[in-house]
Amino acid sequence: MSLLKALFRHPSGRIGATIVLVYLLLAAMGWIGLTPHDPLAQNRIARLQPPSARYWLGTDLFGRDVASRLMTGIGQSFLIAFLSVAVAASVGTVLGLVAAWFERFWDGILMRSMDILLAFPAILLAMLVVAVLGPGTWTSVLAIAFVYMPIFTRVVRGPALSLKNREFVDAARTFGSSTGYIVTRHLLLNIVAPLTVQVTLALAWALLTEAGLSFLGLGTQPPAASLGVMLSDSRNLMEMAPWLMICPAIAIMGGILGFNLLGDALRDILDPKTRVARA
């Protein structure tokens, strides 16, 4: 794969891809239960223990192993992020293509609807969805997908509109190519690159939003482990047990950073606009 090779030759791509791979590994281990301890098992004797050989990242107020909880938390965050971005990207892409292809009426209707959704601050819209559906994993997925969908619609519609006026689409029309062929092979195929970049950045943003919702108590519900909840719980214990705050804080930042770096690198690789100017 030339893309992977290019990614590892790109400095921030190398770091980003490595971070994301490590997180994926941790998430997978968290999911199949391959953790050093049971993330939910409470242990009265081993409460608030600092990091040690037995508890690598210490324990929390209930004596639960922080490292194990972190792994399942990452698993949970990644699951929600991937699912929500998958939903947002597929629905948003279809809507964007429809808006661009039909222009006029459908474009007006769809884009005004997206304007309505975009008129809400993201976290507020997500909160509203949670208020309606009640907190939980699937609600988080839907809330994040709902918030990000209009952005995908815009990201797809813009290039699709300009591609539609390119000469190769004109050429296809002179051959009498079908709408389906033109939309999939001439439009969609050429939007894959910006879409890939957007998906990566959306994943970073989804991690952030998921953590934010959990932090506010509107996301994953305790006792299930979640990075946002762990961080929120650490607030009153921060001076006594700083590792309770530091570990999830670094975990959240690292994940977001990984996807952001990856997205930046992909943008450089997939959109090779040479930037040679100096001042």
Partner: peptide, 14 residues
């Protein structure tokens, strides 16, 4: 049939 002006724009790069 038609041949367009810009050979860079009239072929789908993908």
């Amino acid at each position: 049939q038609m041949v367009f002006q810009n050979p860079y724009a009239s072929l789908n790069p993908r």
